[in-house]
């Protein structure tokens, strides 16, 4: 039996629920949640399956986030500007664009001070799988076409910013 089929209402009425503590919580707590969850999923299902689960979850989050925080936007420029604003206001990260050719289905973007990975210990693989799904879903929301995102540089691999290659199809 399913207990929690995601719906935006699960985010809850934060204003009513946390009149004193408010809507914000530390990045450490977010990461604690993400990486403990990741640990359990990974030990139970393996790293590859865990990646796939995190990518899918990121996609679901991105799609919902697009609907509730970014839509409606009409031009590419407006989409980029609004997304930059919202990601910054929500303190998710600083989005910047290196190239954005939506007609050709190719975008390269970076996220500085990324919520998921900035400041993490250095590894030789990219960590922001959840972000990959999230970013892909934003473009899917805007274009109504399938997109995929791959993190090609990450804080964890020595870069001081996360760089994503986002492609259509």
């Amino acid at each position: 039996m399913r207990k929690y089929i995601f719906d935006w209402s699960l985010v809850g009425d934060i204003g009513a629920g946390r009149p004193n503590l408010g809507a914000e919580v530390g990045v450490d707590i977010y990461r604690l949640m993400q990486f403990t969850l990741r640990d359990v999923i990974e030990s139970r299902y393996g790293a590859e399956e865990a990646d796939s689960i995190f990518y899918q979850a990121g996609k679901m989050a991105g799609a919902e986030f697009y609907k509730h925080a970014i839509h409606p936007v009409s031009t590419v420029e407006e989409f980029v500007r609004k997304t930059q604003q919202v990601l910054k206001n929500k303190r998710i990260g600083v989005l910047r664009i290196e190239e954005a050719d939506l007609e050709e289905g190719r975008v390269v973007l970076t996220i500085d001070e990324d919520l998921d990975c900035s400041g993490l210990p250095e590894l030789d693989y990219e960590t922001c799988i959840y972000d990959e799904g999230f970013v892909a879903a934003l473009f899917e929301g805007f274009t109504q076409q399938p997109w995929a995102a791959e993190e090609i540089d990450c804080w964890c691999t020595g870069a001081r910013t996360c760089r994503f290659l986002v492609t259509q199809g």
Binding site: D153, T157, R160, T161
Partner: peptide
């Protein structure tokens, strides 16, 4: 030219490249 190798030395140059690409955009 987006190269794929990682590490701190390349990261500096990639960062510069990335910034110049942002600037272009």
């Amino acid at each position: 030219n987006l190269v794929t190798s990682k590490g701190i030395v390349l990261a500096g140059l990639k960062g510069l490249q990335s910034n110049l690409r942002h600037l272009t955009w």
